[in-house]
Simulated assay, not measured.
Amino acid sequence: METLQTECTPDEHTQIITDVRFRPNSTQLATSSFDKSVRLWDAANPRYSLQTYTGHTSHVMSLDFHPKKNDVFCSCDDNNEIRLWNINQYSCTRISKGGSAQVRFQPRIGQLLAAASDNVVSIFDIESDRQTHSLQGHSTKVHSVCWDVNGEYLASVSQESVRVWSLTTGECIHELSSSGNKFHSCVFHPGYATLLVIGGYQSLELWNMAENKCMTVAAHECVISALAQSQAIGMVASASNDKCVKIWK
């Protein structure tokens, strides 16, 4: 990241890579793919994958690591199947239904898991293996979800709108219609708790939820497929189908 030079380009997945997540407090990361597998890598020595996790019978669409139990991660496929894995046992420990687009653990404590499938976002209690909320309101497919830094609020993005939910009540507390821009991704701003960064077609929307005001920033030449933020350095990264990644300050 200091030089922005490519260190290594390992090529082991045989089809599209759909998600990439770092293992907490580690240089390791995992990738999910259309090739029905999840692979574990070490960014300090990335030439070969460390381990391959197989068992999904369809395209693996997303994965995420538990924030505290860093030997645990989950993945979902486009057959709506969620698998919970133990890294050290190389095995799937639990299979459930309810996620086909994206899965994200609640930050810090990791008690809850948010999973998007079609136009519904389901919240699961990982410890008791039960669904606690079914967040409904989107009229089209939910592309992505993201938690705020404390894990109290969840944002969900579909092409036509962004919704922010309170996990205390299970209610939608803020909603923004796309007004023509096709929304695809979102992330809470690393420095301002009431600001949501939304990736659409070519542009970023900065949405002040408290005042319900928006600012549009031209960003890419295609859809902004993914966003990430760093609390440590206060920056946001955007990835687009135009083959570019950009860092924003």
Rank of each mutant, 00 (worst) to 15 (best):
H184M: 09
P190E: 00
T168Q: 14
L195W: 02
F183Y: 13
S179K: 15
G199W: 00
E175G: 05
F183V: 05
I173A: 01
F183D: 08
N181M: 12
S185E: 06
L195E: 08
H189F: 02
P190Y: 00
Y192A: 05
H174Q: 11
S177L: 10
A193V: 07
E175L: 04
S178I: 00
I198S: 01
S177Q: 13
I173K: 00
S178F: 02
N181I: 10
F183M: 13
S178P: 03
N181H: 11
V197F: 03
S177C: 07
H184P: 01
A193D: 10
L196S: 01
S185A: 11
L195Y: 04
H189E: 02
G180E: 05
C172K: 07
K182L: 11
S177P: 04
I173T: 14
I198A: 04
S177D: 11
C172Y: 05
A193Q: 13
S179H: 14
H174I: 03
A193E: 14
S179R: 15
E171D: 15
S178Q: 02
P190G: 01
H189V: 03
K182H: 10
G180V: 04
E171P: 10
T168D: 15
E175V: 09
H184I: 01
L176A: 06
F188Y: 11
S177I: 06
K182C: 09
V187D: 03
G180Q: 02
G199E: 07
V187K: 13
C186V: 00
L195M: 12
T169I: 09
T168K: 14
P190S: 04
A193W: 03
C172L: 07
T169K: 12
S177H: 13
L196Y: 03
E175C: 08
H189C: 08
V187C: 15
H189D: 14
F183S: 07
S179V: 10
S178H: 03
C186A: 14
G199H: 00
P190I: 01
T194M: 10
A193T: 09
L176S: 06
I198D: 00
I198P: 01
C186K: 03
F188W: 08
T194C: 14
E171N: 15
V187Q: 14
S179D: 09
H189I: 01
V197E: 05
K182W: 07
G191N: 13
G170S: 05
G170V: 13
V187F: 08
T168V: 15
T194Y: 11
I198K: 08
V187H: 08
G191H: 04
T194K: 14
I173C: 10
P190D: 00
I198G: 04
T168R: 12
S179W: 02
H189P: 01
V187E: 12
N181C: 12
G170W: 15
S179N: 15
T194D: 15
S179T: 11
E171V: 12
T169S: 15
L176M: 14
I173M: 07
N181P: 00
T168A: 14
N181R: 13
S185T: 05
H184S: 10
N181E: 02
F183T: 08
C172S: 14
I198E: 02
I198T: 05
A193I: 07
L176Y: 14
S185C: 06
F183I: 04
I198Y: 06
V197C: 11
F188M: 05
F188C: 07
I198W: 06
L195D: 03
S185L: 03
G180I: 00
C172F: 06
